[in-house]
């Protein structure tokens, strides 16, 4: 049984609502970043890179039993923490559910600023990239 994307998002919103201030929120993201299982080095290639001016992000996707599994990495730890959250939401899901998923939970946990395209940290296009992978694999499934 997979937990639905919406349920995971609600879980995350709940977790974040317990933090008293920005420091707790950031410390949590930093710790998530540290715990993020690293992307396999063979996938840390230029073709898997989302280039930002400030930090780099690598994303790799593969299908496992009709579910799309993402691994990712970044050279900056806060960026990595945000990636960990996105992976928790979108990885191990059916491509169709990924394509259909709403993303307003980002706003609700106060991370919108980090995912703005002008932030130049490589995250701006991350969600778009995840959805593009889903579209590509969805086409294959048909």
């Amino acid at each position: 049984m997979i937990v639905s994307i919406t349920d995971i998002q609600n879980e995350i919103i709940d977790e974040f609502s317990m933090f008293e201030d920005w420091e707790e929120r950031y410390q949590y993201m930093i710790d998530l970043g540290k715990d993020l299982p690293l992307i396999d080095d063979q996938y840390k290639t230029d073709s898997n890179i989302i280039k930002g001016c400030q930090s780099k992000v690598w994303v790799h996707a593969e299908m496992n039993d009709e579910k799309l599994v993402f691994t990712a990495d970044s050279d900056a730890i806060i960026t990595k923490g945000i990636i960990a959250i996105l992976i928790r939401v979108f990885s191990n899901q059916h491509p169709k559910d990924i394509i259909d998923a709403e993303t307003d939970f980002i706003d609700k946990i106060g991370l919108k600023e980090h995912l703005s395209p002008t932030r130049a940290n490589g995250l701006g296009s991350m969600i778009k990239q995840l959805k593009l992978y889903a579209i590509a694999y969805q086409t294959q499934l048909k």
């Binding site: 420091e23 950031y26 930093i30 001016c53 400030q54 900056a76 730890i77 806060i78 130049a120 940290n121």
Partner: peptide, 22 residues
């Protein structure tokens, strides 16, 4: 061992404007 972007992000939270990057 710490990426400049991370330092800049924390400093911004503290109201400090610095430049990070290349």
């Amino acid at each position: 061992g710490i990426h400049p972007y991370d330092v800049g992000t924390i400093l911004d939270k503290l109201g400090i404007a610095v430049r990070t990057g290349h």
